[in-house]
């Protein structure tokens, strides 16, 4: 029983990171209509920036964390200014390919700046644990889950209650008409990129706490994309549920399926595959994801 509980907790804390990354995806997609394949890379850059300030420059962890978020937001705004401002209204494939290219550029740039070594960030909560009965919980995983739930609530309120949030959703649906309503579409897109990249940086830093800071951590972005699609690409709720679901599925698959033998057939490391299998099955039943809605088509 305790084992199950631990799997759930660990699954949730990995899942919370997927959720955060997926949240960034959804934020950018919801407001600009761009599917950002560079989300994982942006998270990696965020983690490296935090590492630079916290470990190399020896600043207090919280300060380094906030600086990384700030730099993340500026980077996001800059990316919008440089690449996507002139891509408004251009074909979807062109914008997607730009994000794919951006992903490679970010990885190489990070390689040049920070090198290819593996680093770790020492956070004040690293290696600290909390014991509830026989179950051991790390502070890191609790904070990760807490922060991702907090951001979830903040963004739900933001998109449904605030003027800027509603304007962002409107702009995503029809930028031209949004302009006619007095919305500065460029500003909205810039804000979306800034916020999306900031959230990616949060995810990257928490991911670094659970593992290491290295270039390959950007691969988590693919799973986050699976999480976002599973939840329904345009749904904040979906991003969080999808992320947590994929984290849990991975946890259980790693513990119960990996290495198991059924009728002479050996399962290898199915952890990596399990999440995608579930995603495919869910999409076959609900093509728009768990919380996705079909577009209203009415002429």
């Amino acid at each position: 029983m305790e084992r199950v509980f631990e799997i759930i907790i660990n699954g949730l804390s990995t899942g919370a990171i997927y959720s955060l990354l997926a949240l960034g995806f959804v934020l950018i997609f919801k407001s600009t209509g761009i599917l950002n394949f560079a989300q994982g890379e942006l998270a990696m850059v965020g983690a490296f920036v935090c590492f630079t300030f916290a470990s190399q420059l020896q600043l207090p962890y919280l300060l380094a964390f906030l600086i990384a978020l700030g730099i993340g937001a500026v980077l996001g705004a800059f990316i919008d200014l440089l690449f996507f401002r002139r891509m408004v209204g251009e074909p979807v494939f062109a914008t997607i390919m730009i994000t794919v290219g951006l992903a490679s550029i970010l990885t190489s740039a990070a390689g040049i700046i920070w090198g290819h070594d593996v680093h770790a960030i020492r956070a004040p909560f690293t290696d600290k644990t909390l014991e509830v009965g026989n179950v051991v919980l790390t502070h890191g995983s609790l904070i990760t889950v807490g922060v991702s739930l907090l951001l979830f609530v903040v963004f739900m309120l933001f998109f449904n209650r605030s003027l800027l949030g509603v304007a962002m959703r409107g702009t995503a649906e029809d930028p031209d008409t949004a302009g006619l309503m007095g919305i500065n579409v460029n500003k909205i897109h810039m804000a979306a990129w800034a916020i999306g990249t900031l959230v990616a940086a949060v995810a990257g830093i928490f991911l670094a706490d659970q593992s290491f800071v290295r270039l390959s951590m950007s691969h988590t972005g693919i799973k986050a994309m699976a999480a976002a699609i599973l939840g329904g690409m345009e749904s904040i709720r979906g991003a969080v549920v999808g992320g947590l679901a994929i984290g849990l599925i991975e946890g259980f698959a790693a513990n119960y399926l990996s290495g198991a033998e059924v009728g002479g057939f050996h399962f290898g490391d199915v952890k990596e595959v399990a999440a995608f299998v579930v995603m495919i099955v869910v999409l076959m039943i609900r093509p728009h994801g768990i919380f996705g809605r079909e577009k209203v088509e009415r002429v």
Partner: peptide
């Protein structure tokens, strides 16, 4: 728009995915 000229575009162009109220919220953006 901020000067006070607002257009009701041809073919209505309402935000179909948003609720009626949210459409009004966007209308008042300026």
């Amino acid at each position: 728009v901020s000067l006070g000229i607002v257009q009701v575009p041809e073919g209505r162009r309402i935000f179909a995915e948003l609720t009626v109220d949210e459409n009004l919220v966007i209308g008042s953006y300026s």
